[in-house]
């Protein structure tokens, strides 16, 4: 079944895809519901909206903008397929603009972000339908091949794999799982859309705060010696547990007397 509103992450950040055929009011309600469900972790994000072939009517664009603003999010740009763009463009007084300089992959730094208030409309020509279907899967994974530093925020609706460290002050937020081939000292939020089966694994797992779906835990106060081995965090019986990572860990055999031994 097609969803009315879908979230997709790519190198430009977060894109919200609206079903082009459904009634706008239904789509808007669904969007508000989804934003509500996401809680405040999307706060401050700049989003793109993909309209597909939809023609926006006067007032609808500002309704979308308002929905995002109520969550402190910013509508960064509007993308539309061949037939849609003209409609939107006319709403914005004929200002079809070209994409701005692409930000660095997957990193929401916020620092160099332009504070331009105009919302550019980008028209794509790809066989739009197929192109977007491919990108949607929640099972998608992004690979970050560097150290994620303080102040940097990685948001991705699928899985996130980091080849490097995640330092204190950095945030990794994933719709799926988070795996760090290095030391994790920042903030992790796995299963950000509510998936309680999501896990966080790292060679050294020392996060300042760890969230899985709606559960929040933090590092114990004071000095504690972390175990010198790879660990994995997941939700079990309503609490977040951290245990030794065991190769071959299978989430479906959970609760059958394994885990730590």
């Amino acid at each position: 079944m097609r969803e009315l509103v879908r979230f997709k992450g790519n190198r430009d950040g977060l894109t919200v895809i609206l079903d082009p055929e459904a009634d706008f009011q239904d789509v808007l309600e669904e969007l508000e519901k989804k934003l509500e469900a996401a809680g405040n972790f999307l706060e401050g994000a700049a989003v793109s909206v993909d309209l597909g072939s939809r023609d926006l009517q006067p007032g609808q664009l500002s309704a979308l903008e308002k929905a995002f603003l109520s969550k402190n999010m910013r509508l960064r740009r509007v993308m539309a397929g061949p037939s849609g763009a003209r409609g939107v463009a006319s709403l914005l007084e004929g200002s079809v603009s070209v994409p701005e300089k692409a930000p660095s992959p997957g990193v929401g730094d916020g620092f160099w972000e332009d504070t331009d208030k105009d919302i550019p409309v980008i028209q794509y020509r790809l066989p739009a339908h197929r192109h977007r279907e491919d990108l949607i899967s929640q099972e998608q994974t992004i690979l970050i091949q560097r150290t994620v530093r303080s102040g940097q925020r990685i948001f991705y609706p699928g899985n996130v794999v980091v080849l490097g460290d995640v330092n204190p002050g950095a945030e990794i937020i994933a719709g799926g799982n988070i795996i760090v081939m290095g030391t994790f000292r920042g903030l992790a939020h796995a299963g950000a859309f509510g998936d309680e089966n999501a896990v966080v694994a790292a060679i050294r797992l020392e996060p300042s705060q760890l969230r899985i779906a709606g559960y929040i835990t933090r590092a114990p106060e004071g000095d504690f010696s972390s175990s010198q081995q790879p660990e994995i965090a997941r939700v079990q019986d309503g609490i977040v547990i951290i245990e030794k990572y065991q190769p071959g860990f299978d989430r479906y055999s959970r609760g059958q007397g394994k885990g730590g031994s």
């Binding site: 994620v148 530093r149 303080s150 102040g151 940097q152 330092n167 204190p168 002050g169």
Partner: peptide
């Protein structure tokens, strides 16, 4: 911590 931010 600040140095880390700057390097980023």
């Amino acid at each position: 911590r600040d140095a880390d931010r700057i390097i980023g």
